[in-house]
Design a protein around this nucleic acid. Structure first.
Lengths: 205, 205
DNA sequence: ACTTAAACCGACCGCTCAGTCGGTAACTAT
DNA sequence: ATAGTTACCGACTGAGCGGTCGGTTTAAGT
């Protein structure tokens, strides 16, 4: 399955730089030549490894974005602890990287969803795949939390997942504007208020 | 202040079609010729009325987007009734138009914020102006609600506004993907749960 | 009828972009 | 050494873009 190591290494380099530029300048606003210039490589090298700009992007989505979303937004939720604590921490960490202008992979996903929506069916399909993996895992984590007695029995896990994803994507759009760290602080405060609603009620002392 | 009526009418037509195309295909993915083709007009007409594509877009933002955001997201909040009821209804209405694939101006704003972030300072400034007008009015509405006894005294109005804007922008990104009406339903349910947190507590019966 | 200016036309320019192609260097197998 | 394959080079093509400009139409004023 692994082609020659050299090939893999080159493709990795190209994809990493590609993601960086596509994220910061947008897909349609980044030319293949922009990527190649930063890598001091030639058109020939690019089209030797990839069929087209679109193919290049899709491979980036599958090889880099999907893995990173998994490792930053899904993996941290594993285990049997209180899902509220883990989701809070997970969002906190993700938004903190966003404050420092590093690549926040949830934000990347959200940006690309906006950029390709209604413009490129093929790419949207791949992005929506990642989105639904996140959604499924969030729902699963919440259900497990309910089963383990961390969440209130009446909680609608699908709805909570939708709401959490919404607020996360939205705060990233807002933070891109002005005063990101103040907005992050306010957001996390309200998120924790919201979490109080769905945590298990200690009706019996 | 009003130039000749003909001039105004033509510019209006161009701007309306421009917004429609920029919204559905994105700014960078829509050429001036695309707009002109749909209007059966010529390059000359376009550059007679507008300095550049960017100038054209900024005028659209100021003349159409700003007004529409105001009339759909801000004006409905006026008055002295319970802000929770009004904000709920306002979001409900905006998301309903979104379900039917009509132009939802909050969504347009959110999309453009994503598209121009880090790519065009000038345009971002105009978009952020609209955003902060919305924010200021939300905060004001909430504070008034607190004063009128509809909201709990301990509510942090800035934080609630940030949280509301986040969730609204986010749900629009999500709804663009799959099953918009199911997501809208789940979202509104959780939003109403959240509102229970900030409404005035009837501690005294 | 003549003048004038606003409104509009569309060929054209310079440039950027995705993608092509004939060539070459480096490595590997025999 | 030779042949074949992989990896890479960079000039080039053709389409599409934003923007220009000389010219034409329309309508109002006199």
């Amino acid at each position: 399955m692994d082609k020659s190591l050299k090939r893999m290494a080159t493709m990795q380099r190209m994809q990493a730089k590609g993601l960086e530029l596509f994220y910061s300048k947008g897909y349609y606003n980044t030319s293949v030549d922009d990527v190649l210039k930063e890598l001091s490589m030639s058109k020939g090298a690019f089209y030797y490894h990839f069929d087209s700009k679109e193919d290049f992007f899709i491979q980036i989505v599958q090889n880099l974005l999907a893995r990173k979303v998994y490792s930053t937004l899904i993996e941290p939720l594993e285990g049997h602890d209180d899902p509220i604590v883990k989701i809070s921490q997970c969002f906190e960490d993700a938004l903190e990287t966003a404050v420092h202008n590093e690549m926040d992979f949830g934000c990347i996903l959200s940006n690309f969803l906006s950029e390709f929506n209604g413009r490129n069916e093929t790419i949207m399909k791949h992005l929506n795949d990642i989105l639904s993996i996140w959604e499924v895992n969030l729902v699963f984590t919440l259900q497990k939390g309910k089963f383990n007695g961390h969440l209130d029995r009446h909680v609608d896990c699908e709805a909570v997942a939708t709401y959490l994803m919404s607020s996360y994507f939205g705060i990233r759009t807002l933070m891109a504007g002005t005063s990101p760290s103040a907005r992050k602080y306010r957001f996390m405060g309200q998120l924790k208020q919201y979490f109080k609603l769905i945590e298990a009620k200690n009706i019996t002392a």
